[in-house]
Design a protein around this nucleic acid. Structure first.
Lengths: 124, 124
DNA sequence: ACCCTGTTTTGAAGTCTGTCAAGCTAGAGG
DNA sequence: CCTCTAGCTTGACAGACTTCAAAACAGGGT
């Protein structure tokens, strides 16, 4: 039983991407997406995420020293990012390597787009 | 003393916008930005946000009925969005009207951009 | 086989969050 | 001035979150 590293958020369930500035989100979609934002809502995780996102992949051993936190705590935060579907992890020999899941990233970016923003007038 | 509606997150302090996929975030910036993501990390607030964002402005009285929650609870969530700097509120007569702060929105969107993403190879 | 290093899991403590009931404030209209 | 409605604030409580220490797990080297 390889209970290794399995994402929890189903990206296909994230009704694809119309920015929230264009159309209100239904309750179900909000339930799916909110955990991703929540995962980024902690300063430690946000930094972890940005460290992972700014390179192709990175070892936990290169993440930990940047924080005044215990190893287990970093590991916990990484797990939250994993379960939010934002990153993937893979063990290679002694070390575990993390990389972003670009789809997830794109999802969130798309939701926040102002793009063809509403402006006055009404939805009629 | 008008303790009306005052934002807490200083948008100017959000070192402007290089996507986290490009350069890791420093601790200070993460501390400033994380609360915005956190505010969106609750399904109720995410829906509120999207309802507000999809029209020019909207009255609390038009937000509340969409949820199976008490008035105070909605009010609490709106306060969180306000203090995260994501929305503004204004009382006009009997009703209070909410609208998004597009700058904040844009900030977050910019951070999530993959834009000139890293791809393999290394940062060299 | 044993130990050493890197990472995750478990268990526990303290803090924060989401929610409601009750009470309060702001404006409209008599 | 009184009352009614819309919305916010306070207080309280159950549940979730962050963190660490201790222990477990995974590989590599001797």
């Amino acid at each position: 039983m390889s209970k290794q590293v399995l994402p929890v958020v189903d990206l296909n369930a994230v009704a694809c991407c119309s920015p929230i500035a264009v159309r209100p989100m239904d309750a179900e979609q909000a339930t799916v997406v909110a955990p991703m934002f929540k995962a980024l809502g902690d300063p430690v995780r946000l930094r972890l995420m940005s460290m992972i996102a700014s390179v192709p992949e990175i070892c936990v051993c290169d993440l930990t020293p940047d924080f005044d936190l215990s190893g287990p705590t970093i590991s916990h935060h990484l797990k939250v990012l994993r379960e939010a579907g934002l990153v993937d992890a893979e063990r290679r020999g002694t070390w575990v390597w993390y990389r972003v899941k670009p789809e997830a990233f794109r999802q969130l970016g798309a939701l926040l787009e102002i793009s063809t923003a509403p402006a006055a007038g009404g939805t009629a």
